[in-house]
Amino acid sequence: MDVIARVGELLKRGETFCLVTVVVSANPDIPAGGKTIVLTDGSMEGGTGSAQLDSKVRALALKALEEKKRGTVEIEDGVRAFFDVLSGEAKLLVCGAGHIAIPLADFARKVGFRVTVLDDRSDFAHPSRFPGCEVIAEDFIVALRDMPFSPSTYVVVITRGHEHDAECLAEVLRKETAYVGLIGSRRRVQFVLEMLGREGIPQERLEEVFAPIGLPIGAESPEEIALSIVAELVTIRRKDHAQGRALRAAAGGSR
């Protein structure tokens, strides 16, 4: 197996998988450096050469994927393997290129998101405002319809008005996403979500929207609000939705 090419390909496709590497070995049949890829569906590429050991490696890899936990395990006497959990670069789509979008895109890029900013106003969605980001100046619905989404796509909806928020969400919630967050006062987000419910977006999907957006750190300025949103994105990427919800609940409110 050409590991570099295969890993690169899986990451580019936005897949999450476990790369198992033998790091210490007293068994000459399983040399250090040997690699096995285990995908989330349990399929394996590479392998140790022993069916029995492979099934153990598969189980450990699936556990690592489930828990998003990397580390080493002794897979047989004198043989230690490192279970690495790799994910394609998380993509952040920011709908709305206003004043919060600038620090948001900047911080998100710094913590490793590939950022796309979308707005229908070309003076706001301008590359000079968002260095290092993909910037799209286009009608929201038109742009979102053709945009590729994956389980590594994070979406933050911060347009200038609730009509645009609603139209963005109506498109985004039909797609596969890692996270969807909506900015606004409690009243405004409630209004938008109820409207989408009436338009036929399933209730379970609406409940997945983080609204109002961001971890409760007492944010006030655009930069602070951006920080609270990025903190939430990192929580979801490193942990899961449950942890994101728990942190909000613990502080009893948003931002």
Partner: peptide, 28 residues
């Protein structure tokens, strides 16, 4: 650097025939 950037760099170095090692924190 993200994992994706690291593996892209590995591919690039290999294409250019530059020998290299990858170091990974496996346990802490």
């Amino acid at each position: 650097m993200t994992d994706q950037e690291i593996f892209q760099k590995c591919a690039e170095l290999r294409d250019r025939d530059i020998p290299f090692c990858l170091a990974t924190i496996a346990e802490a």
